[in-house]
Amino acid sequence: MASLASSVRRVTKYKIVWPLLAMAILYLFNLIVVPGFFKIEVIDGHLYGSLVDVLNRGTPLIIMAIGMALVIALEGIDISVGSVLAIAGSMAIFMLEGHSLWVAILASLVIGLLCGLWNGMLVSILGIQPMVATLILLTVGRGIAQLITNGQILTTTNKGYEFIGKGYFLGLPFAVYIAAAVFIIIYLLKTKTAFGLFLEATGANRKSSEYAGVKPRAIFMSAYAICGLLAATAGIIYSSNLSSADANNAGLWYELDAILAVVIGGTSMRGGRFYLGGTVIGAIFIQSLTTTIYSLGVPPESILLVKAFVVILVCLIQSDAFRQMLTFKRKVTTS
């Protein structure tokens, strides 16, 4: 039993080791190259500095990536999250005109949930490939956001709303607490209800799970619904941080970041096991990477390029054929 326990620990460690290692390298790089990256100042009782910045700016991504992890565990994908973020942000700020803060937030969350349910319906009931199904909302979503904002960039001065994304609580950005809460809720859902088991079982083998009595459709629906809801949450934080909603550019390219975070976190694109902790680390890594690129003075345009390469690299590492090729090559060189 002891050996088993340790081997299990080794495996779980193994999964989270990659993102941690990547992060360590990145931070080491920053330590040498970017002066002041690790400097944290206290101004007005708030913490400031690059690291806090990473955490603060990273919250929408963390939240979104957690939702994405659930979907990817089902061998699915949701590339509409960036657009849902834009819709939710637009909705919230639009509703702030003439409605109370809570109504605005609620409306925003509800529209995110609806978007998620829509995706879930296309995937689980109509059986459309997740990629194509969510592609509809990826492009239509920005149109919907445009309709809400009437083609303008909406701004708000609502102090309560701005607090969500900009405010500080006990020295840390308030959004960090939201991300933590989301993480804890989903973690509890995974470990304290059967949801995690059903999700992983369905993702790993849909047929077997269905024959064992799991309802795959319900699982698909709820995963996509949660993903939509979390994308909306991210949208609220994002728009609150900027005090504005830009239907065109809010959350642009975020879907790639979210996918990347999940995959770096050790969850396979082929579904099955998913890792929430790894996903969060992955998201923080990506945000750190972005911040590093900015602080290095490299043209920010190259970020997309870097990320595209990282995606392919991570997928290659997960690919059996690639690993086989590597081992084959090694054999050739030794012989």
Binding site: I77, P299, S302, C315
Partner: peptide, 30 residues
């Protein structure tokens, strides 16, 4: 090549391609 040789999902490869294309275009000029 990536899709066939490494049996990757076409959509993840072309999704990366989508970002790569825009990324290179950005590098040429915004």
């Amino acid at each position: 090549y990536l899709i066939h040789r490494f049996q990757l999902h076409p959509w993840i490869v072309t999704l990366a391609g989508m970002f790569l294309g825009r990324g290179i275009a950005y590098l040429i000029g915004t």
